[in-house]
Amino acid sequence: MKILNNLFVLTFMLLLLNGTALAHKVNLFAYAESGKIYTESYFPDGRPVEGGKVLVYDSRNKLLLQGVTDKKGLFNLKIPKIDDLNIVIKATMGHKNSFKLKKTEVEAGK
């Protein structure tokens, strides 16, 4: 009976943790400056997305390059192409979001 009770409490706590995580949407912000694109990935409360996968696509949806965010949620890259870029962040538990960096903004930052 005690084991059953413990199992129930554990399951309940796991459900709670899962619920908390689901409420946290990930975000990515990017800007181009001095030939580079700087990306910042974060949760709404400001915590960085650590170890998130960043994928950079051109306007034809071709994957140009990818990388991983550091402890501060940052990933920087050289401007791969002067184009409308779609930069995707993929974090754990299926959290995903994207940021569109316009061609004009990329060009201004080259």
Binding site: N27, F29, P44, D45, G46, N97
Partner: peptide
């Protein structure tokens, strides 16, 4: 005003 998903 909130901008770009960061609520801080």
């Amino acid at each position: 005003v909130n901008a770009l998903g960061l609520e801080k």
